[in-house]
Design a protein around this nucleic acid. Structure first.
Lengths: 150, 150
DNA sequence: GCTGCATTTGCAATAATATTGCACAATATC
DNA sequence: GATATTGTGCAATATTATTGCAAATGCAGC
């Protein structure tokens, strides 16, 4: 993992649709050598996957929200059950067990508030293991970065 | 945007490293027709970008945290200044202005707690516009999804 | 510094893939 | 139901990825 590997990873994190020839030129290597580095980075698991990032609004998910959740029962199995249930929801993009104020943090991508209402019924209300939850609707997205700085 | 487009977007959201020939076969189109759809989806902006997703741990960012921030001054220019400052930080992967309990939610990817300490100095302490902040360290990641369900 | 070993590199040949023009089919519009 | 618009598949071509191999590079032990 040297300077050239880091360069390649940065290029790939920004735009993985570029050709190998192109990137080889930019990092100052021959195409074959560059390709072998990229293959190594993939097989070793540093590069987890290569994916298309959609524009959420153009995909019909216009509302984003962060929800903090406090559970009633805090046992390991209860925590796991709640995380599994939440993770199974399409609208839930991120689900974390956390320290501090609350037990769980969820990030949501919603089509509309009706979807949120129905989601609350399934995850938070009545018969669920949720004591309290706090919803923070996203007003402005200042940063949303998949790339990890090296 | 028909059934085939949605199929293609789902494939691309899961794995954009597959060849056009491969995906054409899976959705039941000829390679040329499939390629033209993909090009259209890119130019129209539904596909925002194609990127490599790294394994955060293998990239040296082993700690994740969610931080909620309450500002002292809530004016538009103060909010913007704080969001810009936070967004400029490498460790900040997401920065949102939100409704509800607090004003801002940040998501962090950290190398160690020393980096967190230094980040707090720059963003939250003393001369900053921050009244209070609550840190939630991620214990378990149950879901972390870039794909948007269609 | 030298030697031997392992790794990386660049070149050239080959295989695979993307890309384009074009005629035809499907679909929508009036 | 006629016409315009869009989407499709085929075939030819251009790009690109991939592989074998010899040379170069880096590295440990001496």
């Amino acid at each position: 993992m040297d300077r050239i590997d880091r360069k390649l990873l940065n290029l790939m994190q920004r735009d993985a649709s570029r050709t190998n020839v192109d990137m080889a030129d930019e990092v100052g290597l021959s195409p074959s050598s560059c390709l072998r580095r990229l293959q190594r980075l993939r097989k070793s698991g540093v590069i987890d996957k290569i994916v298309a990032i959609l524009n959420p609004a153009r995909a019909g998910r216009v509302i984003k929200a962060v929800v903090t959740v406090e559970l009633k029962l805090h046992g390991e199995q209860h925590m796991r059950r709640f995380l599994d249930t939440a993770s199974a929801e399409e609208a839930v993009s991120h689900a974390y067990a956390v320290t501090g104020e609350t037990d769980v943090v969820l990030m949501l991508r919603l089509r509309d508030m009706e979807e949120f209402d129905l989601l609350c019924d399934r995850l938070f209300r009545d018969q669920t293991n949720v004591a309290r939850f706090f919803t923070m609707i996203v007003i402005r997205t200042a940063k949303e970065e998949t790339a990890i700085p090296l």
